[in-house]
Design a binder for these strands. Structure first.
Lengths: 199, 199
DNA sequence: CGATTCTTTGAAAACAGTCAATCTGTGTGG
DNA sequence: CCACACAGATTGACTGTTTTCAAAGAATCG
């Protein structure tokens, strides 16, 4: 499992064999079955997670039972409830495996050690945070200015892989529209594309 | 102007007199009249900005002319288009003074020097980024799960000061609803509160 | 004061949400 | 291998909300 991490990380951070060995020594691995929770609302998010296989979602449930998807993370991406992890406070969110999933975990204490010991890890970590921030800004921009159809289109274009692997009602929930609406939006779009001769 | 910065920053970062002097030596100050732009769409966001007085907004305009407010920043807060600043790429956004405003500016090169030279600045900078990220997550959560009325309520509660100082239609734009809708939501809420005897 | 900006209101139209029913595909157990 | 259960997607009818457009009133700035 760690080999996949090594293969991926090589393109993003320049790490020596020793550094990788150190990272590995401080990590844990875990396998999750479909539907299994990695984090449950109310718990503290103790670990930074790297997905080597499968697919996770972060969502939260309102009192009325409606679920809202905050984020997806497929293999070769990171997942963490930043707020809970950083402040070690109870999380509002659940993190659930949507497929059978394998992850590598670092506790906050261990990851902090890595940040200090390995400059390249610190740089990577900051770059990831920057990217998260930019992506969040972008999502906010779409949320406040796009129509349902534009949101759907942007999602499909930005995350074609995730789109294929996730039920439509979760995409709807991610975008903040009802599943029925998204179904109709999609229908209208497919029809329009067919009329315009798009293959 | 820099004195206001010093007074504010004392509570957030432990800086020596020398360090403050150094920060000052690398900074510039600028006064903006109401309506004046600090950054214009297409320009690169070259500076990190601290507001000592007044009020800024970041917004962007779609092709159809509609404006969407991404963020407000009143005195004692920071403002930057993170994406443009970080990658030194053209910005999608405009930053405009909503009141006569005074700001302190650090170019990216100079601020980077500070990050290296003063550990407390680096810590502060990271903390600010963390907070931005948490705030963004929160806003996304509200965007996808709150009704117009809940969004309005959350805004008033979170930013009572800004709420008092900006026109309602900009709050509407920040929340992603039309000004008319927000006006009606507000009307309905005031009425309800009066009926329930809230002063 | 006069011009501009901002807010409110009404009416109609567009849009999205809800509820209920149906349809589809998948996978499980008999 | 079939039947059934289940999760997901779609559809229709209806309801409710939001937007749009137009107009008027209020507040503010220069």
């Amino acid at each position: 499992m760690f080999e996949k991490f090594e293969a991926h990380i090589a393109a993003y951070a320049d790490l020596t064999q020793d550094e990788l060995k150190y990272m590995r020594s401080l990590s844990a691995t875990r396998k999750l079955r479909r539907r299994q929770l990695l984090l449950q609302e109310g718990e503290v998010c103790r670990c930074k997670t790297f997905v080597t296989k499968g697919l996770l979602r972060t969502y939260y449930a309102r009192e009325d039972g409606t679920e809202h998807v905050m984020r997806f993370a497929a293999e070769n991406s990171w997942m963490v409830d930043h707020e809970s992890y950083n402040n070690q406070t109870p999380s509002r969110y659940n993190i659930e495996a949507l497929e059978d999933t394998e992850v590598i975990l670092w506790t906050r204490e261990n990851f902090d050690r890595l940040l200090i010991a390995i400059p390249a890890v610190r740089e990577l970590s900051e770059r990831l945070k920057s990217n998260s921030l930019d992506a969040s800004q972008d999502r906010i921009r779409m949320n406040i200015s796009y129509t349902a159809e534009e949101k759907y289109q942007a999602f499909v274009t930005s995350f074609p892989d995730i789109f294929r692997r996730v039920p439509l009602h979760m995409v709807a929930s991610y975008l903040g529209v009802s599943r029925e609406t998204l179904s109709r939006v999609r229908h209208a779009q497919l029809k329009r594309q067919r009329e315009n001769g798009v293959v």
